[in-house]
């Protein structure tokens, strides 16, 4: 949660100094609070990632230079023009101003701060716990997302392994070599994910509740009604904005039936939850800090 607040604050900030401070703060938090869980070890990965991102940002800025004629060029490189039609040209390299580089650096720093913040969130909180707080109706989507988040570091690891192994066999040069790298990794990851899916199914994932057909249809209709109301409300807002009270009340009705729909779809599953997350006092403190930080970020104070 705090990580999220940090991340959002960082994305709203353009001052490089503040960004560095935010990044450093994230790391301090990690050092102060981390425990022995595997997540806490992932922080190294995020630090590395943050470094890579800054470097890539700067590099791209130099290659895909968007400026045409900077006032005070810092770096002058030969310009390569890619004509893509009469209206559009894409410049590669060319002169680059200090401002532009600073902008890229700030941009990179911001991303890095965000990554560190996410890293912090990942190291301290455990993304799996987030799953437990999603509404029941979105359980499946949340599962897919959590599978994705878990697979991402594994993907990077197996990419490294396969790249090393590929060095042992003769390979085509350049772009043709791409499938040789991607296919084994993808095959591997798909195999892994299928094992996981098999495990979920073998333990009962996908069982349907004993909801009656009529209930199901009713649920579906509520969703449909919500959508229709939303659509009509939106339409009215656009076409006859003079009577906003009516438009808004239709939209609110749509909103309500949508919420009911979400609740009803959740009732359809028979899943139970054994451990429900409980709030500890420390959590409140964290929420408070997070809120404060967000308020600061939104008011723009951090930019000065």
């Amino acid at each position: 949660m705090l990580g999220l607040a940090f991340a959002i604050s960082a994305s709203l900030t353009v001052n490089p100094l503040t960004l560095s401070v935010l990044g450093a703060l994230s790391m301090l938090f990690v050092l102060a609070f981390r425990d022995q869980s595997p997540w806490s070890r992932s922080v190294v990965f995020y630090i590395r990632l943050a470094g890579i991102v800054i470097a890539i940002r700067l590099l791209f800025r130099i290659i895909f230079n968007l400026e045409s004629d900077p006032a005070n060029p810092l770096l002058v490189l030969p310009e390569v023009n890619l004509g893509l039609g009469d209206l559009v040209t894409m410049h590669l390299f060319g002169s680059i101003s200090a401002e532009s580089l600073q902008a890229a650096l700030t941009d990179g720093l911001r991303l890095a701060a965000i990554i560190l913040a996410i890293g912090m969130a990942n190291s301290l909180a455990n993304p799996m716990k987030l799953l437990k707080t999603t509404p029941g109706a979105l359980y499946e989507i949340a599962t897919a997302i959590s599978i994705a988040i878990n697979l991402a570091p594994q993907l990077i690891a197996s990419l490294n392994r396969v790249r090393r192994a590929r060095g042992l066999r003769g390979q085509s040069k350049g772009i043709k070599a791409l499938p040789g790298l991607v296919i084994p990794v993808l095959e591997d990851t798909i195999d892994q994910s299928m094992t996981l899916a098999a495990s979920m199914s073998a333990r009962g994932f996908g069982r349907k509740g004993t909801q009656s057909k009529a209930r199901l249809t009713l649920t579906r209709f509520t969703g449909l009604a919500g959508l229709v109301l939303i659509a009509v409300g939106a339409f009215l807002l656009i076409l006859s904005p003079t009577n906003q009270v009516l438009d808004l009340s239709i939209t609110v009705a749509g909103l309500l039936s949508t919420v009911i729909y979400i609740k009803m779809s959740a009732l359809g599953s028979l899943r139970t939850r054994y451990l429900v997350q409980k709030f500890r006092t420390g959590d409140y403190a964290i929420y408070l800090i997070a809120a404060l930080l967000l308020a600061l970020a939104f008011s723009g104070v951090l930019n000065f």
Binding site: M200, G206, R271, T272, Y274
Partner: peptide, 8 residues
């Protein structure tokens, strides 16, 4: 508990 949860 995962399996038991899934089985309701």
């Amino acid at each position: 508990v995962y399996g038991s949860e899934q089985l309701g």
